[in-house]
């Protein structure tokens, strides 16, 4: 109210000390007060981020450098051991296999989720009877709790009584039941398949949204120029979908690297670590072997990977915005 008063009562006739000091005082008090108000308004968000993100993150980073044993929980005493935990993790005989698994799982999931999601998005962008309801049904994997769908998949993929093996045997596509979850050769493929199924709706929905934003005139013009369906897809759809593609793939990558529940429900990372990724490895180190420092170290590596790709994502979207 003070500022309003000052501003509505200017004194052009008195340019002396009084007139100049009054607005200045007002101006000085204004930004000062506003700044405090701004601080007060952003404080809850900051406190939230501080308490629920930064503090645990700092704790995890610190734990990665500590010898954190079960007694550390009670006494709070955990000696610092430098990079020992990281060294032990890198030297762990499971580490190489786990990193390779994580890479294969992520790459396999992303490629198929994206291709199938895009195919479905293109398919549903045409209008046809029951298109809406069918598209909604495809969202089911996304809506179901993973514990539910994971358990169902465990039954489907069961070696002896699973419906998948039963069907394949009936169709004479396989001669013997495939031990999907019970073999070191097939378990990674099985968890990747289920994760692809889980990820298709996310890809489809975002890409479908991207397709809606491509103006129909472009297709008409391309068709008039004699471009066939494939040519229109390659020269119109794909280039115009690029910004959305970047978002889908980067977010998909961050989500896939940290997938835990699917693997935990299906195989627990087994048999013999054959479907172990960095997330289940970290869980195993911390909560099965009670090597909390090493578990934290693996967790930090995961965070690092996610942060690197998050930065790529943010820079990518910023560049798109500037365009």
């Amino acid at each position: 109210m003070t500022t309003a008063v000052h501003r509505t009562e200017p004194h052009p006739a008195a340019p002396g000390a009084a007139s100049s000091s009054v607005p200045r005082a007002g101006r000085r008090r204004g930004p000062f007060g506003t700044r405090w108000a701004a601080v007060a308004f952003t404080a809850p968000a900051w406190l939230y981020v501080l308490g629920f993100y930064l503090y645990p993150l700092a704790g995890n980073i610190r734990m990665g450098f500590q010898k954190y044993t079960v007694s550390s929980f009670y006494t709070g005493v955990a000696p610092y051991v430098g990079w020992d935990n990281y060294r032990a993790v890198f030297r762990d005989s499971h580490f190489g296999r786990t990193v390779l698994n994580t890479a294969l799982f992520t790459a396999g999931s992303l490629v198929f989720q994206f291709c199938l999601g895009l195919a479905l998005a293109v398919f549903f962008s045409r209008r046809f009877p029951l298109g809406g309801p069918i598209r909604s049904l495809l969202l089911v994997p996304w809506l179901l709790p993973l514990v539910v769908s994971g358990t169902a998949w465990r039954w489907i993929l069961d070696t002896d009584s699973g419906v998948l093996n039963h069907t394949l045997l009936r169709l004479h596509l396989i001669a013997h039941p495939v031990p999907w979850l019970a073999s070191t050769h097939d378990s990674l493929i099985a968890v990747t398949l289920v994760n692809i199924w889980v990820g298709i709706p996310f890809n489809m929905v975002i890409l479908y949204g991207g397709l809606q934003n491509i103006p129909g005139e472009l297709y008409e013009a391309a068709a008039l120029d004699g471009a066939g369906a494939w040519r229109r897809f390659r020269s119109v759809t794909l280039p115009l979908l690029r910004p959305v593609t970047t978002v889908v793939l980067t977010l998909g990558l961050i989500y896939t690297v940290k997938v835990f529940d699917v693997i935990m429900i299906l195989t627990q990372g087994g048999p013999a670590g054959s479907s172990q990724t960095l997330t289940t490895f970290a869980y195993n180190l911390s909560f099965q072997q009670l090597e909390f420092g090493r578990g934290a170290a693996v967790g930090n590596l995961l965070i690092l990977v996610a942060v690197v790709f998050a930065v790529v994502y943010v820079r990518g979207t910023r560049r798109e915005m500037q365009r």
Binding site: G270, P271, A272, G273, L290
Partner: peptide, 17 residues
């Protein structure tokens, strides 16, 4: 716990791999 985990892994490696 650590030895138990190693043993369980060995059993799985032999049976499933």
């Amino acid at each position: 716990p650590k030895v138990s985990q190693a043993l369980a892994d060995a059993v799985q490696a032999a049976l499933a791999g």
